[in-house]
């Protein structure tokens, strides 16, 4: 099919990678967006979820926030933010046009899986282990740092990994409101009837998602190994 030849031509043409709106710049922009949004969501959601899990309270909220997050389309959220007085479509440094709106939407999108994952991770630490830690005279703080967190770590990392891939995937949607990121390559291709370019963009985005997924799996395995070693090293 001709579309695939055009896609190949677009992918192998150095000009489509270089320059201001080139795919390399957009790739970097999307990585930056994904990293920043995930860092913000982690800084905001993780301590709260871990604390709630430690107390064993607020489970209803921690679990159901995921269901709410699923029902609200990120695209709709983004559209509202862009149409609003603030943040609107203003350019934010390296994050590009509608950068602030995109960051906020992605952060809100990443919060539910992080909160639910971390909360479940801490509450799933076996009760007899917590009991034993209490029996050894550990304070609440010690129990959390020395027992619950190390045992919960693999699941916490699993939640972060899931969020990472999902944020990367969702960041492409910013292009639907003429925002930043690699989605621009796809929407531009579609609006100009250059489906070869649209396909090329889609391929780069999908490849990026798979690379992040595999890298995340590696980090997660590392965390799991550390958690297994933890009891022996103390």
């Amino acid at each position: 099919m001709r579309v695939f030849e055009e896609m190949w031509a677009h992918l192998t043409d150095a000009a489509s990678w270089r320059g201001d709106g080139g795919m390399l710049a957009l790739l970097w922009q999307q990585l930056l967006l994904t990293g920043t949004a995930l860092a913000l969501a982690t800084a905001l959601g993780l301590p709260l979820a871990l604390w709630l899990g430690h107390l064993g309270r607020g489970g209803f909220v921690a679990i159901n926030v995921s269901a709410v997050g699923r029902a609200v389309p990120t695209f709709a959220l983004l559209a509202i933010l862009v149409a609003a007085e603030w943040p609107g479509s203003a350019t934010l440094g390296p994050y590009g046009r509608a950068g602030a709106a995109t960051l906020i939407a992605l952060m809100l999108f990443a919060l539910p899986p992080i909160i639910t994952g971390a909360y479940v991770a801490v509450t799933e630490v076996p009760g007899d282990v917590k009991e034993a830690a209490r029996g050894m005279g550990m304070t609440g703080r010690q129990r959390f740092w020395r027992v619950e967190l190390p045992l919960a770590l693999p699941l916490v990392v699993a939640g972060l990994r899931l969020a990472l891939v999902q944020v990367w995937a969702t960041a492409t949607i910013a292009a639907l409101v003429a925002g930043p990121g690699l989605g621009r390559v796809i929407t531009d291709g579609f609006y100009r009837n250059d489906y070869g370019q649209g396909l090329a963009g889609a391929l780069v985005v999908a490849a990026g998602a798979l690379v992040l997924e595999i890298a995340g799996a590696g980090v997660q395995r590392g965390a799991a190994r550390r958690a297994q070693l933890a009891p022996a090293s103390t």
């Binding site: 099919m1 579309v3 695939f4 891939v165 990367w168 995937a169 969702t170 492409t172 949607i173 292009a175 639907l176 989605g183 796809i186 929407t187 291709g189 579609f190 489906y195 649209g198 396909l199 963009g201 889609a202 391929l203 985005v205 999908a206 998602a209 798979l210 992040l212 997924e213």
Partner: peptide
């Protein structure tokens, strides 16, 4: 199924368009 789920929706539609 896991691999498919990681592909962003905005990227999946162009792949089907041809």
């Amino acid at each position: 199924a896991t691999g498919l789920y990681t592909i962003p929706s905005l990227a999946l539609f162009p792949l089907l368009v041809p």
